[in-house]
Design a protein around this nucleic acid. Sequence first.
DNA 1: CTTGACCCTGAACCGGCTACAAGGTTTTAA
DNA 2: TTAAAACCTTGTAGCCGGTTCAGGGTCAAG
Lengths: 152, 152
Amino acid sequence: MRIGELSAATGVEVETIRYYEREGLLAPPARQTNGYRAYGKSQLERLSFIRHCRALEIPLADIRRLLEFAAQPTAECGDIDRLIDEQLLKVRARLKSMRALERQLAELRKRCDAHHAAGECGILHELVAAAHGEACACHGDVLPVSRRKPNS
Amino acid sequence: MRIGELSAATGVEVETIRYYEREGLLAPPARQTNGYRAYGKSQLERLSFIRHCRALEIPLADIRRLLEFAAQPTAECGDIDRLIDEQLLKVRARLKSMRALERQLAELRKRCDAHHAAGECGILHELVAAAHGEACACHGDVLPVSRRKPNS
DNA sequence: CTTGACCCTGAACCGGCTACAAGGTTTTAA
DNA sequence: TTAAAACCTTGTAGCCGGTTCAGGGTCAAG
């Protein structure tokens, strides 16, 4: 199996496969006499595993750890458990902020519908106004204390 | 106003402010005799505007366009409208895939709870199994046609 | 007079690829 | 038969939106 076929079989781009090899996620494969990379079934499975993890947005560093675990099945399960848990927490936090984001943008979009006839754009108006206010719904109040007086 | 004060007032890190200047989002400010950057109110507003847009995850390139629009209020509103629309679509698409992701991870997490007593980890089991199957729920069937036969 | 907070420039680094340059090999179509 | 197209190789640089680091200068307080 050449790299292009492996790519077609897994849905991972050729350049990405070579990148994974450079990063040590895939072992350097055997070579054909012409220098082409030659892959077997086990490499395909390993790459599918990686692809699957990436679809879950697990970082490469964590995938490396999962692969190490998979290699030695005697080890404990707790670490894997925790890794997935953390990933889930990360995704949930991100989901929450994305939902707030969507509300904000939808709100902004409405402004333009409402204001459309006017020469001034409602959206721009709103963004500038938000920049003026001390605090706003989308990023809270921002008033940290500077530890030193101005020297003007 | 020095850079640190501007940073405190806007919640944007000092390094990021300098980065925005390099990228041309902020004009090079006046300097004090000692070479320190000296900012005024208008720069603060501009930076607040940028910060607000970034909170909406609008890319810097688009913010640049918004700033150009804001500078000449005679221009048409349609482009801004479209820009925000596209941003909203992007966010909604991302939101959708994040929700699928969350389901996947939660499912995976359950496997470990169920399997915990066994020496083999349910999560790893599942990930490996998914790598074996032709298709899976999380990234669909991946069977593009290679345009060339294997030469093995 | 030294400590520590603040400021400066320029460059390298982060993740996770992606693209390009400049070549070699193999298949396919005219 | 030969030329184009598709595939492979290596190495390097670029993408985004910053962050960090090295190696200094400035300024006020204790």
